[in-house]
Amino acid sequence: AKPPKTVTVKVEVTNADGETQTRTVTLTNLPKDLKPGDTVTLPETGQTARIVEITP
């Protein structure tokens, strides 16, 4: 079996106070056609994050 493909992405997350924070997260099994501006759900927090940058 192939190991899951991990991708490092820079995302913007809005916290409970309405502040936008930029975080770098490593995600696995992202859709192939994901692009900056799309939103993903962070598995560890369940927060919705907007992708700023994808590092191949």
Rank of each mutant, 00 (worst) to 15 (best):
G46K: 03
T24R: 05
G46R: 03
Q47K: 04
T14V: 13
P43I: 08
T39R: 07
P56S: 13
N15W: 05
D17S: 10
K35A: 07
K10R: 10
E19H: 11
K32R: 11
P56N: 14
P36Q: 05
K32Y: 14
T41P: 03
D17Q: 12
D17P: 03
V11T: 01
V25W: 10
E44Y: 09
T55E: 13
K5I: 13
P56I: 13
E12G: 02
I54D: 01
K32P: 14
P4K: 09
P36K: 07
Q47P: 00
N15M: 12
N29S: 09
T41Y: 15
K32M: 14
P31A: 11
D38Y: 03
G37N: 03
K5F: 14
I54A: 02
A1G: 12
V7G: 03
V13P: 00
E44W: 09
P36T: 06
T45W: 04
V11A: 02
K35L: 05
P56G: 13
N15C: 09
A49N: 01
T6V: 11
G46P: 01
P3S: 03
V40A: 01
L30V: 15
K32F: 15
G37W: 02
K2L: 13
D17F: 12
N29Q: 07
T39N: 07
Q47G: 04
V13S: 03
V25R: 01
D33S: 06
T26W: 09
T55W: 15
V9F: 05
A16T: 09
E53H: 05
V13F: 15
R50H: 08
T8C: 06
E44V: 09
L30D: 05
L30R: 04
R50L: 15
P4N: 13
E19K: 12
V13Q: 03
V40P: 00
P31V: 12
D38K: 02
I54N: 01
K10V: 15
V52G: 01
V25G: 00
T45D: 08
P56V: 14
L42W: 04
K10H: 04
G46Y: 03
E44P: 05
T28G: 07
P36A: 08
P31K: 13
I51Q: 00
I54R: 01
V40N: 00
A16F: 08
V11D: 00
Q21N: 08
T45R: 02
L30K: 03
A1I: 13
K5D: 11
G18I: 01
T41C: 05
T22I: 15
T39G: 02
D33P: 08
K32D: 14
E19D: 09
T45A: 03
Q21D: 11
T6K: 10
A16Y: 07
P56Y: 15
P43L: 08
T39W: 15
L34G: 02
P31W: 14
T14N: 05
V13C: 04
K2H: 14
V7L: 11
L42Y: 02
P56A: 14
N29H: 11
R50E: 04
Q47I: 06
P3K: 04
T22C: 08
V40F: 14
N29P: 03
G18D: 02
P31N: 14
T55H: 14
E12A: 07
Q47C: 05
L34Y: 06
D38H: 03
T8I: 14
T22K: 04
V9T: 01
K5T: 13
T45F: 05
T6S: 13
L34I: 12
E53T: 07
V11M: 04
Q21T: 14
D33I: 06
E12F: 06
N15L: 12
D33A: 07
K10Q: 06
V52E: 02
I51W: 00
P31E: 14
L27K: 01
V13N: 01
G46M: 04
K35N: 05
R50V: 15
T22M: 13
N15F: 10
T26N: 08
P3M: 02
D33R: 06
N15P: 02
T6P: 10
E19S: 15
A49F: 07
T24M: 12
L27N: 01
P36R: 05
L34P: 08
T22Y: 15
D17K: 12
A1E: 12
K2V: 12
E19W: 09
T48H: 07
K35C: 04
R50Q: 09
D33K: 06
E12C: 05
I51D: 00
E53W: 12
R23M: 15
Q21F: 14
T45Q: 03
P4D: 11
K5R: 14
T20C: 06
G46Q: 05
D17Y: 11
V7S: 06
N15H: 05
E53Q: 07
R50C: 05
K10P: 00
T48V: 14
A1S: 12
T26R: 08
V13W: 15
L42P: 00
T55F: 15
